[in-house]
């Protein structure tokens, strides 16, 4: 298939209502085609011993959307994440020595094929991830963490590193950018602190901010809410929506549906390694496959009851629902 998609920012759906309108016409079934898929995944299978952890035949992720990848614990979400970001290798990957049986795993990001690409190359194509257990570099300062996220720093080459004039200018640029980002994430006062001294929520924010240093086309968040003080989840959700509004597509993993419901534009549900349902958040929860998937593993979990949320969050959710209603109107 020839690549004709225009990936410039002019074609990005900054208008969320327009984006949602587009998604409304997308069929609500596993593997459905999206109008502007930024990421297309085919035949990604991962087996551990006899167990199949992930078996995704086809998935498209809409550009400009906040797509949530949800599913009960053990559904294979994080494994799937690791596979497409190059941190793990699909069992269905084309063997290095040829041979093996197809169909082989392939996936494309912004038109670039990523079939057997190492993690750092995936990140360089503009698909940057964060981790479920935050990987803030604790023995480095917050600022150094940020600077490490930048790209095109000539001083990262060993020989150029010796001569400061070769990288001083770029260093000043990225430092400025880091300062801005830290201010946006309200971490500016912490710039000189060791990342190890931050709270769990602040580390999540730092990790997100650090990922943004390279201006990724898509950011992939692995359980961004895990281990975060509930009082901070609200601001974290706000930051995720800001990311989208400023031109970064978002794919994030979460096992708690309530978090997902109010910020995502599209929801993909995984269970036992497969994608069992897709759809907009307000509809996908009603799919029989989703109910089965969750009931199968969490008999006691209530799917749509907002009373499980704490009051602050419930209020935030109510506000957002109202906002969204206004948008639609």
């Amino acid at each position: 298939m020839p690549e004709t998609t225009d990936w410039s920012s002019e074609t990005y759906d900054f208008d969320r209502a327009a984006l949602r309108a587009k998604l409304r016409d997308v069929p609500q079934e596993p593997g459905s085609a999206k109008p502007q898929p930024i990421l297309t995944v085919d035949n990604v299978v991962r087996r551990f011993g006899g167990m199949t952890a992930v078996e995704v035949e086809h998935l498209e992720v809409q550009r400009g959307a906040i797509t949530a990848l949800i599913g009960p614990n053990g559904a294979g979400k994080t494994t799937f994440f690791n596979l497409i970001t190059g941190f793990d290798r699909p069992s269905s990957a084309k063997s290095r020595f040829g041979g093996g049986q197809g169909p082989f795993a392939t996936w494309r990001f912004q038109g670039e094929s990523l079939g057997a690409t190492s993690a750092f190359r995936v990140a360089r194509t503009g698909m940057v991830r964060t981790f479920q257990l935050t990987k803030a570099l604790s023995a480095m300062t917050v600022m150094d963490n940020m600077l490490l996220g930048a790209k095109d720093q000539p001083g990262e080459h060993m020989l150029a590193a010796l001569a400061r004039p070769l990288w001083r200018k770029r260093e000043a640029e990225i430092r400025e950018k880091a300062t801005d980002l830290l201010a946006r994430f309200k971490l500016d006062t912490k710039a000189k602190d060791y990342a190890g001294s931050l709270s769990g929520g602040q580390r999540k924010l730092l990790e997100m901010a650090r990922a943004l240093m390279s201006d990724p086309a898509m950011i992939m968040l692995d359980e961004p809410m895990a281990g975060v003080n509930p009082a901070l989840t609200q601001s974290l959700l706000g930051h995720i929506q800001d990311l989208r509004d400023q031109g970064t597509s978002v794919l994030f993993v979460e096992h708690d549906m309530h978090m997902v419901r109010h910020i995502s534009d599209w929801v993909v549900v995984m269970a036992e390694g497969r994608i069992v349902a897709e759809g907009p958040p307000e509809h996908v929860m009603q799919h029989q496959a989703v109910v089965d998937a969750y009931l199968g593993s969490h008999h006691d979990q209530d799917l749509g009851d907002d009373s499980v949320l704490d009051e602050d969050f419930a209020a935030a959710v109510a506000d957002e629902d109202a906002e969204r209603a206004e948008e639609k109107a």
């Binding site: 551990f48 011993g49 994080t78 494994t79 994440f81 690791n82 793990d88 981790f131 479920q132």
Partner: peptide
Amino acid sequence: GILGRKERVG
């Protein structure tokens, strides 16, 4: 190794 299992990453 011959009898080891591949470790999960992440």
